[in-house]
Design a protein around this nucleic acid. Structure first.
Lengths: 224, 224
DNA sequence: GTCTATACCCTGATAGAC
DNA sequence: GTCTATCAGGGTATAGAC
Protein backbone atom coordinates (compact mmCIF):
# COMPACT_ATOMS: atom_id res chain seq x y z
CA UNK A 1 0.00 0.00 0.00
CA UNK A 2 1.51 3.24 -1.18
CA UNK A 3 2.22 6.05 1.21
CA UNK A 4 -0.23 8.89 0.80
CA UNK A 5 0.78 12.56 1.05
CA UNK A 6 -1.38 12.76 4.15
CA UNK A 7 0.72 10.03 5.68
CA UNK A 8 3.91 11.89 4.98
CA UNK A 9 2.67 15.07 6.51
CA UNK A 10 1.50 13.26 9.61
CA UNK A 11 4.74 11.37 9.95
CA UNK A 12 6.66 14.60 9.76
CA UNK A 13 4.50 16.18 12.44
CA UNK A 14 4.84 13.15 14.66
CA UNK A 15 8.59 13.13 14.35
CA UNK A 16 8.79 16.89 14.82
CA UNK A 17 6.83 16.68 18.04
CA UNK A 18 9.30 14.23 19.46
CA UNK A 19 12.38 16.02 18.26
CA UNK A 20 11.21 19.43 19.46
CA UNK A 21 10.35 17.96 22.85
CA UNK A 22 13.75 16.30 23.09
CA UNK A 23 15.91 19.19 21.99
CA UNK A 24 13.87 22.34 21.83
CA UNK A 25 13.48 24.59 18.83
CA UNK A 26 17.11 25.58 18.46
CA UNK A 27 18.43 22.14 19.28
CA UNK A 28 16.15 20.27 16.92
CA UNK A 29 17.57 19.37 13.55
CA UNK A 30 15.53 19.30 10.37
CA UNK A 31 17.78 16.48 9.27
CA UNK A 32 17.00 14.54 12.42
CA UNK A 33 13.29 15.09 12.02
CA UNK A 34 13.48 13.77 8.48
CA UNK A 35 15.35 10.69 9.67
CA UNK A 36 12.90 10.10 12.50
CA UNK A 37 9.96 10.42 10.13
CA UNK A 38 11.75 8.23 7.57
CA UNK A 39 11.05 10.87 5.00
CA UNK A 40 13.35 12.81 2.77
CA UNK A 41 14.42 16.14 4.17
CA UNK A 42 13.21 17.98 1.11
CA UNK A 43 9.71 16.74 1.84
CA UNK A 44 9.68 18.76 5.00
CA UNK A 45 10.26 21.90 2.97
CA UNK A 46 7.65 20.78 0.53
CA UNK A 47 5.00 20.54 3.21
CA UNK A 48 6.14 23.35 5.49
CA UNK A 49 7.57 26.76 4.79
CA UNK A 50 10.48 26.41 7.19
CA UNK A 51 11.52 25.02 10.52
CA UNK A 52 9.60 27.65 12.42
CA UNK A 53 6.36 27.01 10.57
CA UNK A 54 6.71 23.33 11.34
CA UNK A 55 7.28 24.17 14.97
CA UNK A 56 4.21 26.34 15.16
CA UNK A 57 2.00 23.78 13.56
CA UNK A 58 3.30 21.16 15.96
CA UNK A 59 2.39 23.31 18.95
CA UNK A 60 -0.94 24.38 17.52
CA UNK A 61 -2.03 20.80 16.99
CA UNK A 62 -0.96 19.78 20.44
CA UNK A 63 -2.51 22.67 22.32
CA UNK A 64 -5.74 22.81 20.42
CA UNK A 65 -6.29 19.12 21.13
CA UNK A 66 -5.68 19.69 24.82
CA UNK A 67 -7.87 22.74 25.14
CA UNK A 68 -10.63 21.00 23.20
CA UNK A 69 -10.66 18.23 25.77
CA UNK A 70 -10.66 20.64 28.66
CA UNK A 71 -13.44 22.70 27.16
CA UNK A 72 -15.51 19.56 26.83
CA UNK A 73 -15.83 19.36 30.60
CA UNK A 74 -19.49 19.90 31.47
CA UNK A 75 -19.96 23.51 32.51
CA UNK A 76 -23.04 22.63 34.51
CA UNK A 77 -21.03 20.66 37.07
CA UNK A 78 -20.15 22.33 40.36
CA UNK A 79 -16.75 24.10 40.34
CA UNK A 80 -15.14 21.64 42.76
CA UNK A 81 -15.94 18.78 40.43
CA UNK A 82 -14.91 20.75 37.39
CA UNK A 83 -11.47 21.42 38.85
CA UNK A 84 -11.12 17.75 39.63
CA UNK A 85 -12.03 16.91 36.06
CA UNK A 86 -9.73 19.60 34.78
CA UNK A 87 -6.82 17.97 36.57
CA UNK A 88 -7.73 14.48 35.41
CA UNK A 89 -8.35 15.55 31.87
CA UNK A 90 -5.19 17.58 31.53
CA UNK A 91 -3.10 14.91 33.21
CA UNK A 92 -4.54 12.22 30.98
CA UNK A 93 -3.75 14.18 27.89
CA UNK A 94 -0.25 15.05 29.05
CA UNK A 95 0.41 11.39 29.63
CA UNK A 96 -0.82 10.46 26.19
CA UNK A 97 1.35 13.21 24.75
CA UNK A 98 4.41 13.48 26.94
CA UNK A 99 5.90 15.89 24.45
CA UNK A 100 3.45 18.60 25.35
CA UNK A 101 4.55 19.39 28.89
CA UNK A 102 8.17 19.35 27.84
CA UNK A 103 7.56 21.72 24.96
CA UNK A 104 5.43 23.86 27.24
CA UNK A 105 8.14 24.12 29.90
CA UNK A 106 10.58 25.27 27.27
CA UNK A 107 8.27 27.75 25.65
CA UNK A 108 7.47 29.16 29.05
CA UNK A 109 11.15 29.67 29.79
CA UNK A 110 11.63 31.26 26.41
CA UNK A 111 8.77 33.71 26.68
CA UNK A 112 7.09 32.43 23.54
CA UNK A 113 9.79 33.72 21.23
CA UNK A 114 9.05 31.33 18.42
CA UNK A 115 5.30 31.69 18.52
CA UNK A 116 2.97 33.78 16.44
CA UNK A 117 -0.30 35.36 17.50
CA UNK A 118 -2.37 32.40 16.44
CA UNK A 119 -0.37 29.79 18.29
CA UNK A 120 -0.23 31.93 21.41
CA UNK A 121 -3.97 32.37 21.28
CA UNK A 122 -4.44 28.63 21.07
CA UNK A 123 -2.25 28.16 24.12
CA UNK A 124 -4.27 30.72 26.02
CA UNK A 125 -7.37 28.61 25.69
CA UNK A 126 -6.12 26.35 28.44
CA UNK A 127 -5.52 29.24 30.80
CA UNK A 128 -8.88 30.78 30.05
CA UNK A 129 -10.71 27.54 30.76
CA UNK A 130 -8.82 27.04 33.98
CA UNK A 131 -9.25 30.51 35.36
CA UNK A 132 -12.92 30.49 34.40
CA UNK A 133 -13.57 27.47 36.56
CA UNK A 134 -11.77 29.00 39.51
CA UNK A 135 -13.48 32.36 39.10
CA UNK A 136 -16.85 30.68 39.04
CA UNK A 137 -16.08 28.77 42.23
CA UNK A 138 -15.05 31.96 43.93
CA UNK A 139 -18.12 33.78 42.70
CA UNK A 140 -20.57 31.21 43.96
CA UNK A 141 -18.77 30.80 47.27
CA UNK A 142 -17.61 27.24 46.74
CA UNK A 143 -13.97 28.32 46.87
CA UNK A 144 -12.33 30.79 49.15
CA UNK A 145 -11.58 34.16 47.52
CA UNK A 146 -8.41 33.26 45.65
CA UNK A 147 -6.94 35.02 42.67
CA UNK A 148 -7.88 32.91 39.64
CA UNK A 149 -4.63 33.45 37.79
CA UNK A 150 -2.40 32.74 40.78
CA UNK A 151 -4.44 29.66 41.49
CA UNK A 152 -4.29 28.55 37.90
CA UNK A 153 -0.51 28.49 38.07
CA UNK A 154 -0.70 26.61 41.34
CA UNK A 155 -2.70 23.88 39.65
CA UNK A 156 -1.01 23.73 36.28
CA UNK A 157 2.51 24.22 37.60
CA UNK A 158 2.63 20.86 39.33
CA UNK A 159 1.03 19.15 36.34
CA UNK A 160 3.58 20.48 33.89
CA UNK A 161 6.52 20.07 36.20
CA UNK A 162 5.67 16.57 37.32
CA UNK A 163 4.70 15.20 33.96
CA UNK A 164 7.22 17.18 31.95
CA UNK A 165 9.95 16.38 34.42
CA UNK A 166 9.35 12.65 34.10
CA UNK A 167 12.67 11.95 32.34
CA UNK A 168 14.82 13.60 34.97
CA UNK A 169 12.74 12.17 37.79
CA UNK A 170 13.26 8.68 36.44
CA UNK A 171 16.95 9.38 36.35
CA UNK A 172 16.89 10.39 40.01
CA UNK A 173 14.92 7.28 40.89
CA UNK A 174 17.37 5.12 38.96
CA UNK A 175 20.15 6.66 40.99
CA UNK A 176 18.19 5.84 44.16
CA UNK A 177 17.95 9.47 45.14
CA UNK A 178 14.20 9.39 45.03
CA UNK A 179 12.16 6.46 46.30
CA UNK A 180 10.50 4.51 43.51
CA UNK A 181 7.19 3.85 45.23
CA UNK A 182 4.17 6.04 44.90
CA UNK A 183 5.53 8.05 41.99
CA UNK A 184 3.14 6.80 39.32
CA UNK A 185 0.99 9.35 37.54
CA UNK A 186 -2.25 8.08 38.99
CA UNK A 187 -1.02 8.70 42.51
CA UNK A 188 0.14 12.11 41.48
CA UNK A 189 -3.23 13.03 40.01
CA UNK A 190 -5.04 11.94 43.15
CA UNK A 191 -2.54 13.79 45.28
CA UNK A 192 -2.99 16.97 43.30
CA UNK A 193 -6.76 16.72 43.30
CA UNK A 194 -6.86 16.40 47.07
CA UNK A 195 -4.29 19.10 47.56
CA UNK A 196 -6.14 21.55 45.36
CA UNK A 197 -9.47 20.78 46.92
CA UNK A 198 -8.07 21.46 50.37
CA UNK A 199 -6.32 24.58 49.17
CA UNK A 200 -9.46 26.01 47.67
CA UNK A 201 -12.02 25.22 50.33
CA UNK A 202 -11.14 27.21 53.39
CA UNK A 203 -11.06 25.76 56.84
CA UNK A 204 -12.10 27.99 59.74
CA UNK A 205 -9.23 30.47 59.61
CA UNK A 206 -7.43 31.10 56.38
CA UNK A 207 -6.15 34.50 57.33
CA UNK A 208 -4.35 33.85 60.61
CA UNK A 209 -1.07 32.75 59.14
CA UNK A 210 0.47 31.95 62.50
CA UNK A 211 -2.38 29.86 63.89
CA UNK A 212 -1.68 26.16 63.80
CA UNK A 213 -4.41 23.57 63.83
CA UNK A 214 -3.28 20.41 65.57
CA UNK A 215 -4.24 17.29 63.64
CA UNK A 216 -6.80 15.23 65.45
CA UNK A 217 -6.15 11.94 63.75
CA UNK A 218 -3.94 10.50 61.07
CA UNK A 219 -5.93 9.80 57.97
CA UNK A 220 -5.99 6.06 57.36
CA UNK A 221 -4.95 4.61 54.01
CA UNK A 222 -1.95 5.36 51.83
CA UNK A 223 -0.48 8.84 51.33
CA UNK A 224 -2.33 11.03 48.90
CA UNK B 1 41.65 50.59 36.96
CA UNK B 2 42.72 47.54 35.00
CA UNK B 3 40.42 44.61 34.58
CA UNK B 4 41.56 41.63 36.63
CA UNK B 5 41.32 38.04 35.36
CA UNK B 6 38.81 37.40 38.11
CA UNK B 7 36.67 40.14 36.64
CA UNK B 8 36.77 38.57 33.22
CA UNK B 9 35.75 35.18 34.47
CA UNK B 10 32.87 36.64 36.44
CA UNK B 11 31.72 38.74 33.53
CA UNK B 12 31.68 35.67 31.33
CA UNK B 13 29.65 33.72 33.85
CA UNK B 14 27.21 36.58 34.27
CA UNK B 15 26.70 36.90 30.57
CA UNK B 16 26.44 33.14 30.13
CA UNK B 17 23.72 32.93 32.74
CA UNK B 18 21.62 35.45 30.87
CA UNK B 19 22.24 33.98 27.45
CA UNK B 20 21.54 30.42 28.53
CA UNK B 21 18.34 31.52 30.24
CA UNK B 22 17.26 33.42 27.13
CA UNK B 23 18.03 30.79 24.54
CA UNK B 24 18.85 27.51 26.19
CA UNK B 25 22.00 25.51 25.74
CA UNK B 26 21.62 24.82 22.05
CA UNK B 27 20.33 28.27 21.25
CA UNK B 28 23.00 30.15 23.13
CA UNK B 29 25.93 31.41 21.09
CA UNK B 30 29.45 31.60 22.41
CA UNK B 31 29.84 34.67 20.25
CA UNK B 32 26.83 36.27 21.86
CA UNK B 33 28.06 35.47 25.33
CA UNK B 34 31.37 37.10 24.52
CA UNK B 35 29.63 40.19 23.21
CA UNK B 36 27.34 40.39 26.25
CA UNK B 37 30.33 40.04 28.57
CA UNK B 38 32.28 42.57 26.49
CA UNK B 39 35.10 40.09 26.38
CA UNK B 40 36.90 38.51 23.47
CA UNK B 41 35.53 35.16 22.46
CA UNK B 42 38.91 33.50 22.82
CA UNK B 43 38.88 34.45 26.49
CA UNK B 44 35.94 32.16 27.01
CA UNK B 45 37.98 29.26 25.74
CA UNK B 46 40.89 30.37 27.85
CA UNK B 47 38.80 30.19 31.03
CA UNK B 48 36.53 27.30 30.15
CA UNK B 49 37.11 24.06 28.31
CA UNK B 50 34.13 24.44 26.03
CA UNK B 51 30.54 25.61 25.85
CA UNK B 52 29.29 22.70 27.89
CA UNK B 53 31.77 23.25 30.71
CA UNK B 54 30.69 26.88 30.85
CA UNK B 55 27.09 25.79 30.98
CA UNK B 56 27.71 23.39 33.83
CA UNK B 57 29.57 25.91 35.88
CA UNK B 58 26.78 28.41 35.34
CA UNK B 59 24.22 25.96 36.66
CA UNK B 60 26.40 24.76 39.51
CA UNK B 61 26.91 28.29 40.77
CA UNK B 62 23.25 29.11 40.56
CA UNK B 63 21.94 25.97 42.20
CA UNK B 64 24.50 25.75 44.94
CA UNK B 65 23.68 29.32 45.96
CA UNK B 66 19.98 28.48 46.09
CA UNK B 67 20.37 25.26 48.03
CA UNK B 68 22.73 26.96 50.46
CA UNK B 69 20.04 29.49 51.27
CA UNK B 70 17.39 26.85 51.64
CA UNK B 71 19.61 24.73 53.86
CA UNK B 72 20.14 27.73 56.09
CA UNK B 73 16.53 27.56 57.24
CA UNK B 74 16.52 26.68 60.92
CA UNK B 75 15.86 22.97 61.27
CA UNK B 76 14.51 23.45 64.75
CA UNK B 77 11.45 25.32 63.53
CA UNK B 78 8.19 23.44 63.21
CA UNK B 79 7.60 21.94 59.74
CA UNK B 80 4.72 24.26 58.91
CA UNK B 81 6.95 27.26 59.46
CA UNK B 82 9.83 25.66 57.62
CA UNK B 83 7.70 25.11 54.54
CA UNK B 84 6.60 28.70 54.70
CA UNK B 85 10.21 29.79 54.91
CA UNK B 86 11.16 27.41 52.15
CA UNK B 87 8.67 29.07 49.83
CA UNK B 88 9.74 32.59 50.79
CA UNK B 89 13.41 31.78 50.55
CA UNK B 90 13.19 30.02 47.22
CA UNK B 91 10.92 32.69 45.78
CA UNK B 92 13.23 35.44 46.96
CA UNK B 93 16.21 33.83 45.33
CA UNK B 94 14.38 33.12 42.10
CA UNK B 95 13.41 36.76 41.91
CA UNK B 96 16.96 37.89 42.48
CA UNK B 97 18.09 35.44 39.82
CA UNK B 98 15.31 35.21 37.27
CA UNK B 99 17.59 33.13 35.08
CA UNK B 100 17.43 30.18 37.41
CA UNK B 101 13.81 29.18 37.01
CA UNK B 102 14.05 29.57 33.27
CA UNK B 103 17.13 27.40 33.06
CA UNK B 104 15.52 24.93 35.41
CA UNK B 105 12.36 24.63 33.32
CA UNK B 106 14.46 23.90 30.29
CA UNK B 107 16.72 21.41 31.96
CA UNK B 108 13.68 19.66 33.34
CA UNK B 109 12.20 19.35 29.88
CA UNK B 110 15.49 18.11 28.54
CA UNK B 111 16.02 15.43 31.16
CA UNK B 112 19.36 16.85 32.26
CA UNK B 113 21.09 15.97 29.00
CA UNK B 114 23.84 18.52 29.35
CA UNK B 115 24.58 17.88 33.00
CA UNK B 116 27.27 15.80 34.63
CA UNK B 117 27.03 13.91 37.91
CA UNK B 118 28.31 16.78 39.97
CA UNK B 119 25.91 19.36 38.63
CA UNK B 120 22.98 16.99 38.96
CA UNK B 121 23.93 16.30 42.54
CA UNK B 122 23.99 20.01 43.29
CA UNK B 123 20.53 20.37 41.82
CA UNK B 124 19.28 17.53 43.97
CA UNK B 125 20.14 19.44 47.12
CA UNK B 126 17.02 21.52 46.69
CA UNK B 127 14.79 18.48 46.33
CA UNK B 128 16.37 16.78 49.32
CA UNK B 129 15.85 19.81 51.54
CA UNK B 130 12.26 20.16 50.42
CA UNK B 131 11.26 16.55 50.81
CA UNK B 132 13.01 16.38 54.20
CA UNK B 133 10.82 19.14 55.56
CA UNK B 134 7.67 17.49 54.29
CA UNK B 135 8.68 14.06 55.57
CA UNK B 136 9.35 15.48 58.99
CA UNK B 137 5.96 17.16 59.09
CA UNK B 138 4.29 13.92 58.14
CA UNK B 139 6.30 11.99 60.71
CA UNK B 140 5.41 14.26 63.59
CA UNK B 141 1.78 14.49 62.58
CA UNK B 142 1.79 18.17 61.66
CA UNK B 143 0.93 17.34 58.06
CA UNK B 144 -1.46 14.79 56.74
CA UNK B 145 0.22 11.68 55.34
CA UNK B 146 1.26 12.95 51.95
CA UNK B 147 3.97 11.58 49.72
CA UNK B 148 6.97 13.90 50.16
CA UNK B 149 8.11 13.74 46.56
CA UNK B 150 4.66 14.33 45.11
CA UNK B 151 4.19 17.20 47.51
CA UNK B 152 7.57 18.62 46.71
CA UNK B 153 6.57 18.95 43.08
CA UNK B 154 3.31 20.51 44.11
CA UNK B 155 5.21 23.23 45.94
CA UNK B 156 8.11 23.81 43.60
CA UNK B 157 6.09 23.45 40.40
CA UNK B 158 4.14 26.66 40.95
CA UNK B 159 7.28 28.50 42.03
CA UNK B 160 9.20 27.58 38.92
CA UNK B 161 6.29 27.99 36.59
CA UNK B 162 5.11 31.31 37.96
CA UNK B 163 8.52 32.90 38.31
CA UNK B 164 10.08 31.29 35.26
CA UNK B 165 7.02 32.04 33.21
CA UNK B 166 7.18 35.74 34.04
CA UNK B 167 8.10 36.83 30.49
CA UNK B 168 5.19 35.11 28.82
CA UNK B 169 2.80 36.12 31.58
CA UNK B 170 3.76 39.74 31.10
CA UNK B 171 3.08 39.32 27.44
CA UNK B 172 -0.39 37.99 28.18
CA UNK B 173 -1.03 40.86 30.56
CA UNK B 174 0.14 43.34 27.96
CA UNK B 175 -2.34 41.82 25.55
CA UNK B 176 -5.03 42.23 28.21
CA UNK B 177 -5.69 38.52 28.33
CA UNK B 178 -4.74 38.36 31.96
CA UNK B 179 -5.73 41.01 34.47
CA UNK B 180 -2.78 43.07 35.66
CA UNK B 181 -3.81 43.35 39.32
CA UNK B 182 -2.66 40.96 41.97
CA UNK B 183 0.01 39.34 39.85
CA UNK B 184 3.04 40.64 41.72
CA UNK B 185 5.42 38.12 43.21
CA UNK B 186 4.61 38.99 46.80
CA UNK B 187 0.96 38.17 46.28
CA UNK B 188 1.96 34.95 44.62
CA UNK B 189 4.18 33.93 47.50
CA UNK B 190 1.45 34.59 50.03
CA UNK B 191 -1.04 32.74 47.90
CA UNK B 192 1.21 29.73 47.61
CA UNK B 193 2.00 29.70 51.32
CA UNK B 194 -1.65 29.68 52.23
CA UNK B 195 -2.51 27.15 49.60
CA UNK B 196 0.21 24.77 50.71
CA UNK B 197 -0.63 25.14 54.35
CA UNK B 198 -4.24 24.27 53.65
CA UNK B 199 -3.24 21.41 51.42
CA UNK B 200 -0.98 19.90 54.03
CA UNK B 201 -3.06 20.24 57.16
CA UNK B 202 -6.07 18.02 56.80
CA UNK B 203 -9.56 19.15 57.51
CA UNK B 204 -11.94 16.54 58.86
CA UNK B 205 -12.23 14.32 55.83
CA UNK B 206 -9.39 14.14 53.38
CA UNK B 207 -10.29 10.76 52.05
CA UNK B 208 -13.90 11.16 51.01
CA UNK B 209 -13.29 12.66 47.61
CA UNK B 210 -16.94 13.21 46.92
CA UNK B 211 -17.82 14.94 50.18
CA UNK B 212 -18.22 18.67 49.82
CA UNK B 213 -17.82 21.10 52.70
CA UNK B 214 -19.95 24.17 52.26
CA UNK B 215 -18.13 27.38 53.09
CA UNK B 216 -19.48 29.08 56.17
CA UNK B 217 -18.25 32.57 55.49
CA UNK B 218 -16.27 34.44 52.90
CA UNK B 219 -12.86 35.30 54.25
CA UNK B 220 -12.52 39.08 54.53
CA UNK B 221 -9.61 40.90 52.90
CA UNK B 222 -8.15 40.56 49.41
CA UNK B 223 -7.72 37.27 47.60
CA UNK B 224 -4.77 35.20 48.66
C1' DG C 1 5.03 14.38 -4.75
C1' DT C 2 9.55 12.48 -4.12
C1' DC C 3 14.52 12.41 -4.17
C1' DT C 4 19.78 13.91 -4.95
C1' DA C 5 22.95 17.12 -4.72
C1' DT C 6 24.54 21.29 -3.28
C1' DA C 7 24.84 26.30 -1.87
C1' DC C 8 25.86 28.88 1.93
C1' DC C 9 25.89 30.70 6.40
C1' DC C 10 26.55 30.39 11.09
C1' DT C 11 29.06 28.87 15.01
C1' DG C 12 32.13 26.20 18.06
C1' DA C 13 36.76 25.90 18.51
C1' DT C 14 41.96 26.77 17.78
C1' DA C 15 46.52 28.73 16.22
C1' DG C 16 49.60 31.91 17.09
C1' DA C 17 51.14 36.87 17.64
C1' DC C 18 51.65 40.12 21.36
C1' DG D 1 46.11 36.96 29.78
C1' DT D 2 44.43 39.15 25.66
C1' DC D 3 43.45 39.58 20.80
C1' DT D 4 43.03 38.64 15.40
C1' DA D 5 42.32 35.58 12.04
C1' DT D 6 40.72 31.45 10.45
C1' DC D 7 39.28 26.65 10.01
C1' DA D 8 36.18 22.88 9.96
C1' DG D 9 31.64 21.05 10.48
C1' DG D 10 26.91 21.07 10.83
C1' DG D 11 22.71 23.10 9.74
C1' DT D 12 18.96 25.39 7.07
C1' DA D 13 17.27 25.83 2.87
C1' DT D 14 16.84 25.34 -2.35
C1' DA D 15 17.49 23.90 -7.32
C1' DG D 16 16.23 20.83 -10.36
C1' DA D 17 15.72 15.96 -12.13
C1' DC D 18 12.29 12.40 -12.12
Amino acid sequence: MARTPRDTRTRILDAARLEFADRGFAGAGVDTIARRARVNKAMIYYHFADKQALYRETLSDLFSALTARVRAIDEALPPATRIERFIETAAGFLQQHPELPRIMLRELAEGGTHLDQETLTTMQGLALSGTAIIAQGVADGTFRPVHPVLTYFTVVGPLMMYLGGAPIRHELVRRKLFPAEGLDSESFVRHLQTFVKLGLTAGPDTRATTARRRPTRRTPGGPT
